[in-house]
Structures are given as structure tokens and as C-alpha cells.
Nucleic acid binder design. Structure first.
Length: 329
DNA sequence: AAGCCGGGGCG
DNA sequence: CGCCCAGGCTT
């Protein structure tokens, strides 16, 4: 790759902009590599405003990696409730236990050590190295991928092998020199989040526009085509008996460990008591809920206490809808 | 390489 | 309504 840009000047412009306009975020106030890792795992495919309250509650309840390692899975899932991608919560729990067992409670800074931990992939390993340890690393999230693709007018799909190699090489090249990795990557990320945004970027107030090669920035980055949305329908049984509700602990890969309404065969000739629609990854699911007897796999929960169980949002919403329709009757 | 995993906000 | 988000794991 040929760089015709003056890297020190680019670094200086962006760093000065960041000192002026950078975001203030809770996980930037901590020096704990563990809390940095917590924030990064929470931020996987999840927006900053959604994460902030969860991160603050987490830092309060599990301030150290030992606190998390000693917690029960129930406590962990309860605190994660509503954030989505629940395998992240179980991975973070295992992450804490392995950090304690293998590294004496100190989050490692080596790329290989980090990548071997549950829930840590290329992005998170790089982010922990940069933000917690201030070490050079190719931090490529959705924001930085977009900024770099535009800066170099790169039309390779950013989710292809070739695109990722290009971005990684570019990211490492741009942080050469004396610049702090933590500062540089924070600045690049904030530029993507607030100026070099998806769709039409605000090039008029971009601190590095004189370095940008993008001819049509709104068309970048390119991505591979993704799967179409499939419509599916599912029937679930709701059993409310003697002030208790019957719920099943999900065992499958989806919502594992969370309490759900058991799936049933759709009873012929019956109308659902509740019907709602929710999107999940590449599906649009129509959930039809029927009055039913207790499913064999389910357990009775007290009508007040079940509200505090970890439960996927659509199931929680279905029960709330049923309760509001029942009180009207 | 492709499929799968939630939820929310915003245009 | 579709798109996108501080991605990782499994197949």
C-alpha cells in the first residue's frame, strides 16, 4: 500500500480535534483493564447510549474481575437482561473465571492471550490492548472501518478477507510514531461516530478532510450483500394457574439460560390470546400465544417474582400484553 | 465463507 | 419500514 499522506500532520489534526470534540464516556474514566473489557464486550453490536446504564450498574455490582468470577450465572444474566446477545454475558462470565484461574486476576495484554479468552475476537483484543494498555493494535470497529474506507477510498467489502487486511494494515500504519494508541484510536472512533457517520457524512466539519480520498463518501464502506429477511411463525403456551406462571428455561442456542414461554403445537381451531411480531437477526417472527396447560418442561414461578427473571424482551412483552388484556375482561 | 445470535434508535 | 450498531462463535 502506498501512503502519500503526511501521517504526523494527520495524527496531529485528529488528536487536536479529539481533545476539543471527543466524547466523554464512562469507560474512558477507568484504568481497569477488566472494566475496559466489560465495556468492549457490551459494545459489540450495541450502541453507546444503550450500553451506558448497563456498564454503570455492572461496575457497581461487579467492580473487580474476582467479583464477577464469584457470581452465579443467574446474577450475571439478570444484570444483562434487555441488552441482547446473551451469549456475551455467559462469555464475559467465563472470561472472568479464566482471567482469575490462568492469569491471577490480571487481564492479559498479549494479543494471543486475549484472543484465547471467551468472547474476545480480533476487535475486542485490539480494543483492550489500545484502550486499557495503550499498546499499538488494529482497532477496527464499524466506525473505524467506515473512516478508513473513506479516507483511502477503499471499495473492497469491509467484511471480506481482503477488505479486513487492507483496513488492518492501514490502521497500523496510521498509528506509527509517537502518538498514543489509546488517544489515536479513541479519536478515530469518535470521528466515525459523530462526523464521518453512515450515509451522508459531515465533511464540512471534518478535521482531516484535506487528507480524505473518498470521491463519493456516502457510498462507502462497501459490504457484502446480506441474507434476506424470512418470515416465520411460532406458537407458545401461556399457563397462569393459582397465581403462578409456568415458564421454561431455554436450553437451545437461542436465549440459552433465559426463561421463556414454552413452544407448543398450534392448537387447531383456537384463536391466540396474544399475537405479536418481533425481528430477530434475519427473521421476522410472528408469535402466537395460546392458553395452555403447564408444559412438561416448564416450572411454576410466583406471579410477582417472575418479573425479575432474565427473559427475552419479546416474551416479557407477550406476558405484559396478556396481563393488560386479562385485566380488561 | 456463511449463518446465527437481540435489541433499540433513527431516517 | 429498513438500516446500523465499539462483533464473536459455530458450522
Amino acid at each position: 500500500m502506498v501512503f502519500t499522506v503526511d501521517i504526523p500532520e494527520l495524527q496531529c489534526n485528529l488528536a487536536n480535534w479529539f481533545r476539543r470534540e471527543g466524547r466523554s464516556l464512562p469507560w474512558r474514566d477507568t484504568v481497569s483493564p477488566y472494566l475496559v473489557a466489560v465495556s468492549e464486550i457490551m459494545l459489540q453490536q450495541t450502541r453507546v447510549p444503550a450500553v451506558i446504564p448497563y456498564f454503570l450498574r455492572w461496575a457497581e455490582k461487579f467492580p473487580s474481575v474476582q467479583d464477577l468470577a464469584e457470581a452465579s450465572e443467574e446474577e450475571v444474566l439478570a444484570l444483562w437482561q434487555g441488552l441482547g446477545y446473551y451469549s456475551r454475558a455467559r462469555n464475559l462470565h467465563r472470561f472472568a473465571r479464566e482471567v482469575c484461574r490462568r492469569f491471577g486476576g490480571q487481564v492479559p495484554s498479549g494479543e494471543g492471550d486475549l484472543l484465547a479468552l471467551p468472547g474476545v475476537g480480533d476487535y475486542t483484543a485490539a480494543a483492550v490492548r489500545a484502550f486499557a494498555f495503550d499498546l499499538p493494535a488494529p482497532v477496527i470497529d464499524g466506525n473505524i472501518a467506515r473512516v478508513l474506507a473513506r479516507l483511502f477510498d477503499c471499495h473492497l467489502p469491509v467484511d471480506s478477507a481482503a477488505g479486513k487486511k487492507f483496513l488492518s494494515d492501514a490502521a497500523m500504519k496510521l498509528q506509527e510514531g509517537e502518538i498514543s494508541s489509546r488517544l489515536w484510536n479513541s479519536a478515530l472512533m469518535d470521528l466515525g461516530a459523530t462526523v464521518c457517520i453512515p450515509g451522508e457524512p459531515a465533511c464540512g466539519r471534518c478535521p482531516v478532510r484535506e487528507f480524505c480520498k473518498a470521491k463519493h463518501p456516502s457510498t462507502l464502506p462497501k459490504k457484502k450483500a446480506k441474507a434476506e429477511i424470512t418470515r416465520i411463525s411460532e406458537a407458545r403456551g401461556l399457563c397462569f394457574l393459582n397465581g403462578k406462571i409456568w415458564l421454561e428455561k431455554s436450553a437451545g442456542p437461542r436465549w440459552k439460560g433465559l426463561w421463556i414461554l414454552p413452544e407448543i403445537e398450534e392448537p387447531p381451531g383456537c384463536e391466540p390470546v396474544v399475537c405479536l411480531e418481533y425481528p430477530i437477526t434475519r427473521y421476522k417472527v410472528t408469535m402466537r400465544v395460546f392458553d395452555s396447560l403447564p408444559a412438561p418442561s416448564s416450572e411454576a414461578h410466583d406471579a410477582e417474582a417472575f418479573q425479575n427473571l432474565p427473559m427475552p424482551s419479546p416474551h416479557r412483552r407477550a406476558i405484559a400484553l396478556w396481563m393488560s388484556s386479562a385485566t380488561k375482561k
